[in-house]
């Protein structure tokens, strides 16, 4: 049962990831990415990371991708199609094949050291993660709050700058 769930949601994640990069409309690609995130959440649960699965669901599918959706819809660029394969040339394909052949031995070495199937116990419960966050990882945890604050400041500063300048420009024009 567990391995059936694993393979089903793996296939779903791969399929929706392929849809993300091939659909030409940004809104549809975004919805495919949300599907990919949901199936990845199930995989995290199966791999024993309960708290991370819930955080992933809330932060990614609930906040980050909805932020993407708002930006796409507010800018009105969801409907504008940009041709998909205009960058593709056959000379690139030859280069890609060459570099793939170069990487093949490394990939084969990595294949030989892959672990076999094993039973996974849930280690990432809320209690364990909370204990680790506030003891071993206290300094990085506090630094992430600083990082998020800087992110918010820079986002507001970047997005707000132009409109403030536009207002002063308009005021200047009205004075003239």
């Amino acid at each position: 049962m567990v391995s059936f769930l694993f393979y089903f949601f793996s296939a779903l994640a791969l399929l929706s990831a392929l849809l993300v990069i091939t659909l030409s409309r940004p809104t549809r690609a975004l919805l495919a990415l949300i599907l990919c995130m949901l199936s990845l959440t199930v995989l995290y649960l199966l791999l024993g990371a309960e708290f991370l699965a819930m955080v992933h669901l809330i932060v990614y599918a609930g906040a980050v991708l909805v932020l993407f959706l708002f930006v796409i819809m507010l800018l009105g660029i969801g409907a504008k199609d940009i041709p998909l394969f205009s960058r593709f040339r056959f000379s690139y394909l030859i280069l890609a094949l060459l570099s793939s052949v170069l990487f093949l031995p490394f990939i084969l070495i990595a294949f030989q050291s892959l672990p076999g199937p094993q039973t996974v116990f849930p280690t990432g419960t809320l209690a364990a993660v909370g204990k680790a966050l506030f003891s071993d990882y206290l300094l990085p945890f506090e630094l992430t709050s600083l990082l998020l604050l800087i992110g918010v400041f820079s986002a507001v500063g970047l997005a707000k700058k132009e409109s403030a300048e536009g207002e002063t420009r308009q005021q200047g024009r009205s004075c003239e």
Binding site: L67, F68, V129, Y137, T144, L148
Partner: peptide
């Protein structure tokens, strides 16, 4: 899992800045 948690936080900050740059 803890490293994955911090990657998530950094991804959220990156998305905020990246989307602001896209809007600009």
């Amino acid at each position: 899992q803890m490293v994955a948690f911090f990657v998530m936080v950094i991804a959220a900050a990156e998305v905020a800045v990246g989307l602001a740059i896209a809007v600009l």
